[in-house]
Simulated scan of single mutants.
Amino acid sequence: MKHVKKVSKRTRVLTGSALAAAVALGGVGAYSASAADTAAPAAAKPAAVKAGNTLQTKHLTIDAAQDAAEAVLDAAKKENQKVSVAIVDRNGNTILTLRGDGAGPQSYEAAEKKAFTAVSWNAPTSELTKRLESAPTLKDIPGTLFLAGGAPVTADNAPIAGIGVAGAPSGDLDEKFAQAGVAELAK
């Protein structure tokens, strides 16, 4: 019969720990390898867009929008009117909105909608109200407001922005003040 050498408790604990660590690391390695197989491939370089497949547009600067908005508020103040003014870009995104001192709470949103409507159709909103007679469902388009007070801003015969004004007792006055903003941009 063979004699088995006795191993100390300390040696058995260390050997068992090393064996457990080796098994655990082997499992992690297998898991990592399988996870790498299912991971998305490395991102490729974006392809350059073919010439002629893009369009370049002009945009109103924030400084120009601020100047136009101040011209609107100054024109309204000269006639003792309390209005809000909104300026949107070609896509209808608001560049800025100013609620004039004392302007009614409804004027803020109405100004934005008038600006959006003016740039969307590249026409003053006073002209667009006349189109409702032949196409009454136009007013159902979300974000629009077919009341006088919106004016488009153009560059190279293309719309680049809209100015909307609301709060005066008549749409004619709102539109007059919006046109003061357009005139400021032409300087």
Rank of each mutant, 00 (worst) to 15 (best):
A69P: 00
V49S: 05
H59A: 15
L55K: 14
A51Y: 04
S32M: 14
T54N: 04
A36T: 06
I62S: 08
S32F: 14
A47P: 01
T54Y: 12
D74E: 07
D74M: 08
A44Q: 13
P46E: 10
V49P: 01
D63W: 04
A30P: 00
Q56R: 10
T38E: 10
K50E: 14
T38D: 06
V49Q: 03
D37V: 15
V49I: 13
A39L: 12
A68W: 01
I62T: 13
G52M: 06
A42W: 03
A40I: 03
Y31P: 00
L60I: 15
A76D: 08
P46I: 05
A33P: 00
A68F: 03
D63K: 13
A75H: 01
P46Y: 02
P46S: 13
T61F: 14
A33I: 13
A51D: 07
S34D: 07
D37R: 14
D37A: 15
V49F: 08
Q66T: 13
P41R: 09
A76S: 12
L73F: 02
A35D: 03
Q56A: 15
A69I: 06
A48P: 05
Q66F: 11
Y31N: 05
A40S: 13
G52V: 07
A64Q: 10
D63H: 11
A44M: 10
A68E: 02
K77N: 14
K45C: 04
V72C: 08
A39M: 10
A44G: 12
A75K: 01
I62V: 14
D63S: 12
A71L: 12
T57H: 09
A39W: 08
A75S: 13
K45G: 04
A68I: 04
A40P: 08
A71C: 09
A35E: 05
A48H: 05
A76Y: 07
K58T: 09
A69D: 01
K45W: 06
A48C: 03
A44K: 11
K77F: 04
G52F: 00
K58V: 15
T61L: 07
A64I: 02
A69G: 14
E70H: 11
V72K: 02
A40W: 03
Q56S: 15
K45H: 03
D37E: 12
I62M: 09
A51N: 01
T61S: 15
I62G: 04
L60W: 01
A71F: 10
A40M: 04
A51L: 10
T61R: 08
Q66S: 09
H59T: 15
A76K: 01
S34T: 11
K77R: 15
